[in-house]
Design a protein around this nucleic acid. Structure first.
Length: 422
RNA sequence: GGAGAGGUGGCUGAGUGGUUUAAAGCGGCGGUCUUGAAAACCGUUGAGCGUGGAAGCGUUCCGGGGGUUCGAAUCCCUCCCUCUCCGCCA
């Protein structure tokens, strides 16, 4: 949600931000609507002011038993009713139109975000670890199915394409990964573990920006709720419509949840394996912070996510998303991409975004600044990390020539000391 | 699912048709006192929008939406949420 005052004062900067996302300028249309809204608001307020004053006179006249005067005034106010009703409706319509327009426009990129059309123009900023040389690596599907631990066919029979059933040690490895990540973030990075609702209302989805534009990507329920596409939604909405005490900030939440996505625009992409499913699990990180520290918190959060890959000894790189690849609500996004031997490339395993006050405006989540004035908080979210893809990465990077998978050292305590799978 | 009670500013909470568009308390801020602090006392303190150089003036907001009325926190309808009891249930 954009600040109309900012657009009034800096229309060129606003359109410049949209241009970075390759969107046409919209400030002129917005400001025209804003001007019409303000004109009708002024008209309405003048009429209401007059009505209120006369209503008080009626009260006085009645108290003085001056019925004739009261009747005369009542007739006069009643004559105003049509005008007030008309202007009230006009104001409502303009305000709704303006709101709908502002709601549909994505966040403005940070000046440091590189300009680009798509993921090919993301900018690598660092690498960590060297890919091991594995001769003719198998992909995770072959490894999993050979061991009888990954069953796409059973999943397809009951649920259709883009689902999987993990079994035995692989199911346990997924749980081990999640436990490891949660313990790391809660014990070393100051995050509070949350077990949140997985079904949310419209308002929550509007708050974080999935609605109104991206309804086709979401699974809705028959009672007008939505399956969460990421725990970012419930974790960020923990402060929905709240005045958060400054002393409580920053709030740092983490959760391990399933995520549900229709992948409507992804037909034909990543159809093999666990890379792109309708249901996957993820450990999410969310920070709610005072505005002035969100850039630092963004680095901190990214670093927390990186620690997961470092402890798992998985080679990865960090990229800054270009404007064309960045999500709707983000000001700036870092992606972590993990090395997948079977594809001989880095694939996204985490996305860490600073949303500035964009989501907070939508949620009406505020705090008191040092000047005592209320201000919108800043929100950040990041995967810490995607558990399904981490499972894929561990399988492929830890495979040996016989198709066995070594259990990473940090996961062995979560696997009852087991050192290999398969 | 059934019955009942509720939802008021950052928080607690009074207020059942008008002449204060929300009492009081807590919290916050400022001050007096003090070496400093605490306590006590005094003052001050909601948000949004419009208008204006500013002071100010106006307007909206008492869970959301709609209605009745000259006028609604207050009356009516509807939805949401919370609590209590009953039913069902992991």
């Amino acid at each position: 949600m954009h600040d109309i005052k900012f657009i009034r004062e800096h229309p060129d900067a606003f359109d410049g931000g949209l241009a970075l996302r390759d969107l046409p300028p919209q400030s002129a249309q917005i400001l025209d609507l804003d001007a019409r809204l303000r004109a009708v608001t002024t008209e309405l307020q003048e009429a209401l002011s007059k009505r209120n004053a006369m209503s008080k006179e009626i009260g006085k006249a009645k108290a003085q038993k001056n019925e004739d005067e009261a009747q005369r005034l009542m007739a006069e106010v009643e004559a105003m009713k049509g005008f007030i009703a008309e202007k009230t409706e006009d104001e409502r319509a303009f305000a709704e139109a303006l709101r709908a327009l502002l709601m549909s426009i994505p966040n403005l990129p940070d000046p440091s975000t590189p300009h680009g059309l798509d993921e090919t123009q993301n900018v690598e900023i660092r690498r960590h670890g060297d890919p091991k040389s594995i001769s003719s690596p198998q992909d995770h599907v072959s490894l999993g199915e050979a061991n009888g631990l990954m069953d796409f066919e059973a999943a397809a029979r009951m649920s259709g394409a883009r689902f999987v059933a993990l079994k035995g040690d692989l199911a346990r490895l997924e749980r081990a990964l999640a436990s490891f990540m949660l313990d790391l973030h809660t014990q070393e990075h100051g995050y509070t573990e949350v077990s949140p609702p997985l079904l949310v209302r419209d308002e929550a989805m509007f708050g974080t920006g999935q609605l109104p534009k991206f309804a086709e990507d979401q699974f809705g329920t028959t009672d007008e709720r939505w399956l969460i596409p990421t725990a970012e939604v419930p974790l960020t909405n923990m402060v929905y419509d709240q005045m958060v005490a400054a002393a409580d900030l920053p709030l740092r939440f983490t959760a391990y949840t399933p995520c549900f996505r229709k992948e409507a625009g992804s037909a034909g992409r990543d159809t093999r394996g666990m890379i792109r499913l309708h249901q996957f699990s993820k450990v999410e990180l969310v920070s709610i912070v005072p505005p002035q520290i969100s850039a630092d918190e963004h680095e901190r959060m990214t670093s927390a996510a990186e620690t997961v890959l470092q402890r798992l000894d998985l080679p990865y790189r960090v990229v800054t998303l270009c404007t064309g690849d960045m999500g709707f609500s983000a000001v700036k996004t870092f992606d972590l991409e993990v090395w997948l031997p079977s594809q001989a490339q880095y694939r996204e395993i985490s996305s860490c975004s600073n949303c500035g006050d964009f989501q907070a405006r939508r949620m009406n989540s505020r705090t008191k600044g040092e000047d005592g004035k209320s201000q919108f908080v800043h929100t950040l979210n990041g995967s810490g990390v995607a558990v399904g893809r981490a499972l894929v990465a561990v399988m492929e990077n830890y495979q040996d020539d016989n198709g066995r998978i070594a259990v990473p050292d940090v996961l062995q305590p979560y696997m009852g000391g087991q050192s290999h799978i398969g």
